[in-house]
Design a binder for these strands. Structure first.
Lengths: 124, 124
DNA sequence: GACGTTCTACTACAGATGTAGTATGCGTCG
DNA sequence: CGACGCATACTACATCTGTAGTAGAACGTC
């Protein structure tokens, strides 16, 4: 299972997010699920979903009335992994990244401790 | 000082990385500084630098012979911040992100402790 | 001062991306 | 069963990106 990586654009990733959240949805539902000030047109979302379909990131599941339902065909995790890896590559590793988070106040010492604790537990 | 955000593409970011590393450099030096299997053509790098210049991310410093020198006009930190923020937005916060790093083995418990220690110290 | 070398400026261009319109089809409600 | 409305399929298009070629200017070397 070759698991070729699919490259997603920003907007495509946004749409995937909605689909991961909903599990399955129509174009209309995806559009409604997008969190933005000024929503893209219905057909815009439709186009993105079509492209995602071509890329193999999404597949049709069923039809209800004349509306199609779509679901993710790739996992959230695989996409996150790629994005995280890219960022790590840029900043020079996870240590610097986390340090940056702490430094900029996006992660507290308490957070760190909580994660540590959870990690220890799950490792057992 | 409005500090408008400059949006960089992947390649542009790569070029900025070289510039941040070198401090100041000619097109030729940037090209040499790029870490890739198959290097982009000289003029390709030149074009990217020109675009960066237009975006205000880079500025000319001096001329030596007939070659121009360029330096970053925006900080590494500001760019990282933006990228990190975007990722955080997607994955839902720094806690999940770090958890993901630990889980995927990209960050060890020892790393966590080291960061914690450093953070504690620098905070004083 | 003529030449070859090396830069810069400008131009080109295909493919990706965001954005959306149009035409046409299928369903449903009276 | 006919009309209205929403959905889909297809088309369009301006920008952005990555990529690089070409023309002409500036240097350094004989």
């Amino acid at each position: 299972m070759a698991r070729e990586q699919i490259d997603l654009t920003k907007f495509e990733t946004e749409v995937m997010s909605v689909l991961w959240r909903l599990g399955e949805a129509t174009v209309r539902e995806v559009q409604d699920g997008i969190d933005r000030d000024d929503l893209p047109a219905y057909t815009t979302v439709q186009t993105i979903i079509q492209r995602l379909e071509q890329k193999g990131a999404v597949r049709r599941t069923r039809k209800e009335g004349n509306a199609l339902f779509f679901e993710p065909a790739i996992t959230r995790k695989s996409v996150y992994r790629r994005l995280v890896d890219e960022l790590l590559d840029l900043v020079g590793g996870s240590q610097p990244l986390v340090a940056h988070l702490v430094e900029s106040g996006k992660l507290s010492l308490d957070d760190l401790r909580a994660i540590e604790k959870a990690a220890k537990k799950s490792r057992k």
